[in-house]
Design a protein around this nucleic acid. Sequence first.
DNA 1: ACCTGAACACCGTTCAAGT
DNA 2: ACCTGAACACCGTTCAAGT
Lengths: 239, 239
Amino acid sequence: MTPRTTDADELAEQPRIPLSRRRVLRAAVRLADRDGIDSLTMRQLAQELGVEAMSLYHHVANKEAVLDGVAEVVLGEVMVAVDEVEAPSPDADWRAALRARILAAREVFLGHRWAPQVLESRTTTNPLVIAYYDRVVAILRAGGFSFELAHRALHVLGSRALGFTQELFRPDGTGTPDEEAAALMEQMADRFPNIVGMLADAVHDDPDGTLGFCDDQFEFEFALDLILDGLERRRAAGS
Amino acid sequence: MTPRTTDADELAEQPRIPLSRRRVLRAAVRLADRDGIDSLTMRQLAQELGVEAMSLYHHVANKEAVLDGVAEVVLGEVMVAVDEVEAPSPDADWRAALRARILAAREVFLGHRWAPQVLESRTTTNPLVIAYYDRVVAILRAGGFSFELAHRALHVLGSRALGFTQELFRPDGTGTPDEEAAALMEQMADRFPNIVGMLADAVHDDPDGTLGFCDDQFEFEFALDLILDGLERRRAAGS
DNA sequence: ACCTGAACACCGTTCAAGT
DNA sequence: ACCTGAACACCGTTCAAGT
């Protein structure tokens, strides 16, 4: 137990600040940021607030509601971030307008690495997700998209519209890239010749390894631009 | 407790079939398919096998190993499915070759709806995922891709290469599309004007609603083709 | 070698009781 | 109105003991 400045400590000295849904959810986000999403339990959340677990149930219905709530907090940050971004008007350049907002949204998720997993675990669509996509559609419409093509665009973009993707194939990012890669390739060379060739080539392209093995930001922007290209092409074709 | 034919019933009459890692994992997949992934607990899995929970630990290290194992079973099915698919040779037509395999892989995931969530929850990349992507790279290479562009392609495709996407914005698919949509739009019209316009248009395009509100298969193929288009364009440009 | 019962340290949640 | 302690029904997992 390392001493930290938590609400619990503060409350021991100050008169008790009453609990509220908002305070509960902000504490939940803080806890997930600090200790990981698996540490977000009702009991640990209560401790973070200097309160008993059962007190939480006066402000949130149950744990599912807490998870809906932390999604809400993160999406609230996203809405602020995309509002503040500097970008051309959608009427002038829909691509630049959308691209800038998506990359701004991405920044928020880089600060809450657990958030994609939580968002994808929700069974009902969060109203703020609808609000966000509503604005994406607005930008596409301003850019000359039909409702139909805008609909297709949402499906193509998927969570990438919010600035993140969940990849299944991630060449283990822990440790120094070069060492890891060398050891791994030795073992895998005969089983996975194409992957090994590909990764060897990627290392060669980036000999000093400062960008890491896969530069996520670069890959994200490459993929986003490829998709925006494809959408613009179909828009121009009037499909 | 509705009576079912489970291993437990069979074992009551037959001499005991010895447990094995393989039997444990196949039972886990069966349980997840029937009752959902949340029902896959060590205790319920043991019951499915007519055994005590603690017996499982002689065949799998822990629950994480069970989840790795069920991912392995599903990916095994994927490997078989893509092997059996009829498709042009990658040398002749990489796009058709890859497209057919991805759609075949997709079929497997349609039979295990919980599998995407499990795959995305794994912290270490499953070797069969690497094997699958190795074959994707082989197809791209046969189609004239540089290693570098093949690498980009994997990032653009992401889980779509395995035939699934996890969407955040899903206009609630329960109930009849028309009723749901009408009720929802009434409430949302002023808050989300663009989304509502888009969805109203989608309903209009498909008046008898037989395809459902969002035709997932159609949307998946549209998105896949857009991405394959973009990749081919960049390949031809020699980037 | 393989399986088991009891137990432990955790969960989310309910309930009756406190202030 | 808001918070609490004890309890319940679950988890995953350990351990010593059975066959």
